[in-house]
Simulated assay, not measured.
Amino acid sequence: MPGPGEFELIREYFTSRFQTGSRSGTADNGVELGIGDDCALLLPPAGKRLATSVDTLVADVHFPAGGDPYRIASRALRVNLSDLAAMNAEPLWFTLALTLPHSDPAWLEPFARGLAETAHEFGITLVGGDTTKGPLSITIQVTGACARPLRRDGASAGDIIYVSNQLGAAAAALPVVLGEVTVSPRQQQQAETAYYAPEPQFAVARAVEGYASAALDISDGLLADLGHICDASQLGAELNLDQLPVAVLAHSLQADAAVETALTGGDDYQLCFTVPARHRDAVQALQLPITPIGHLSEEPGIRCQWHGKPWQPRGTGYQHF
């Protein structure tokens, strides 16, 4: 039995879950007109800048094609929201371009439910998009508003480098999620949570907005992403890997490779940010789940030390090409 057509699909699985705006022109959460027209009509918050970002997730590249569609949807939105968190932007609206090999209600229902529940959790509204037939891919564009954006290009030599929470869990989890290794039920649950449910670091970004000089989220691995701050600020970095907060799951699944995994594995979606040394005490007093791991320097490149000796990682982080 064939699945719903394009417009029936949109009405049944998305419009009904994201009722926003009205034909009368009354705005709801800044949405004057949402899903169902040629364009959404949106009202930006007064006195704030709009921040927008877009990511495409491709089946068997960014998520397993045979994975739980509920979790796939949640992950797809969360990793995009992480970009807003890194910019210190409040989530407002998003659009979805969904390419499907088949119009399958058994896949669409949990996908749409996962998307709607995650959107509700983070206070962001679907306002439009597109559906088409082809290899499974998910493109989400998020828009938020910020008064004090955290950019990549504001750092200075001597600034302290911080990361939030722990690193390496998602990369260590990937072989488990793909079914390539067998682990205990507890580790299986931890791995699936680490991979499918990254937590955008909105609270950390808000707390450090008055102190941070630069920031980004860690998606392709700390080494690669810190390199973006260095490039944008025309600096280098000195890292002390003895201070690197390596996730317990990385230690348990990766053993001797745990530090390498935390440094280059990617998919953490934690915050990496820099703080001038004069703000060190104020930032530490915030009692956030953050760790200082080094400092920026005038010399280009990133240099790592481990146990007091120079250490060269085998990889540099994820690259698409």
Rank of each mutant, 00 (worst) to 15 (best):
V177P: 00
L174R: 14
Y211A: 10
R113T: 15
A215R: 01
I140F: 07
V142L: 10
I124M: 12
A207W: 00
I218K: 00
S213H: 04
Y195P: 01
S156H: 15
A207S: 05
E117Q: 15
R206L: 04
D220H: 12
I140V: 15
E192S: 10
Q189C: 12
K133N: 08
R152D: 02
Q190A: 10
Q201H: 13
L222R: 00
G123T: 13
L216M: 14
G210A: 09
Q190R: 03
T131N: 13
I124F: 08
I160E: 10
D130C: 08
E117P: 10
S219P: 11
L222D: 00
E121Y: 07
A194F: 05
A215V: 03
V176L: 01
Q141R: 13
I140T: 12
N165Y: 15
R113Y: 10
I161G: 00
K133G: 13
Q201V: 04
E180C: 11
L115E: 08
D130M: 10
L126S: 11
A214F: 02
A191L: 01
A212S: 08
R113E: 15
S213G: 09
R148C: 10
L222G: 00
Y196S: 05
G168N: 03
P175T: 01
L167F: 07
E117A: 14
A170W: 11
C146G: 11
V181P: 02
P185V: 03
A214P: 05
V204A: 07
D159E: 13
V208K: 01
S137L: 13
E209A: 14
T193M: 02
A197K: 09
A169C: 08
G168A: 09
G168P: 06
T125H: 14
A119V: 08
V163N: 01
I160V: 15
E180S: 07
A215H: 01
T132Q: 15
G114A: 12
R152H: 06
S137E: 15
A116G: 13
I161E: 01
Q190Y: 04
T125N: 14
V163C: 10
R152P: 06
A155P: 09
